[in-house]
C-alpha cells in the first residue's frame, strides 16, 4: 500500500440506534481488514454506543443526569431504529442475528479494536451530556473535537455520516 493518493475511511456515528451502529462497525471492520486506516468519530447520540454498560449516570445538572438515566446507553442497551416494539423487536433481531452466527455489536466493537480502528469520542457532546472519559469503554482512547475529525476526513477517501 505504497500509493501516494489518500486512502482511508472515516465514519461519524451520530446515531445511537443499534441497526445503524451495526452497519457502521460492519463497514469499519471490513475497511480495516482491507488494510485501510479507519477512524470512527462518535458524537451526540452515537456516544451511547460506546458508553460502558455498567456506566454511572453521568454528572452535572439534573437535566444531564436525567438524560443519562432515561438513556443509559451501552452497546447491549441500544434499540432498533424501526420495529423496536417496546424492546420485543430488538430482542427478536438479536435472536435472529445469533441464529445466523452474526457477531453482536459488542463483539463488533472488540473486533474493531483488534483491527486497529481508531475510536474518538466528541468532547463537545460529552460536555453537553455530562459524560467524562471514565464513562466510556476502554477501546475509546481518544477524546477530540471536530477539527480532529475533519483533519482525518481530509486524509481519507471515504467519509460516512451515520
Amino acid at each position: 500500500m505504497a500509493e501516494e493518493r489518500k486512502r482511508g475511511v472515516t465514519i461519524v456515528l451520530f446515531s445511537g440506534d443499534l441497526d445503524r451502529a451495526l452497519a457502521a462497525f460492519n463497514i469499519a471492520n471490513t475497511a480495516a481488514a482491507m488494510g485501510l486506516p479507519v477512524t470512527m468519530f462518535f458524537t451526540f447520540w452515537g456516544l451511547g454506543v460506546i458508553k460502558k454498560e455498567e456506566g454511572r449516570v453521568g454528572s452535572g445538572s439534573w437535566m444531564k443526569r436525567a438524560m443519562n438515566l432515561i438513556d443509559r446507553g451501552g452497546a447491549k442497551r441500544l434499540k432498533l431504529s424501526r420495529m423496536n416494539m417496546g424492546g420485543v423487536g430488538t430482542a427478536m433481531m438479536k435472536k435472529l442475528m445469533a441464529e445466523h452466527r452474526m457477531p453482536s455489536l459488542g463483539e463488533m466493537i472488540a473486533m474493531a479494536d483488534q483491527l486497529g480502528v481508531r475510536m474518538l469520542a466528541c468532547t463537545t457532546s460529552m460536555a453537553l451530556m455530562g459524560l467524562t472519559e471514565k464513562d466510556f469503554i476502554p477501546q475509546v482512547r481518544e477524546f477530540a473535537g471536530a477539527a480532529t475529525y475533519v483533519s482525518n476526513a481530509l486524509d481519507s477517501e471515504v467519509n460516512l455520516f451515520i
Binding site: 460492519n26 471490513t30 481488514a33 488494510g35 452474526m102
Partner: peptide, 10 residues
C-alpha cells in the same frame, strides 16, 4: 456472513 469471512481472511 459479511464481514466475518473477510475479517478472518485478513
Amino acid at each position: 456472513y459479511c464481514p466475518m469471512p473477510i475479517v478472518k481472511t485478513s
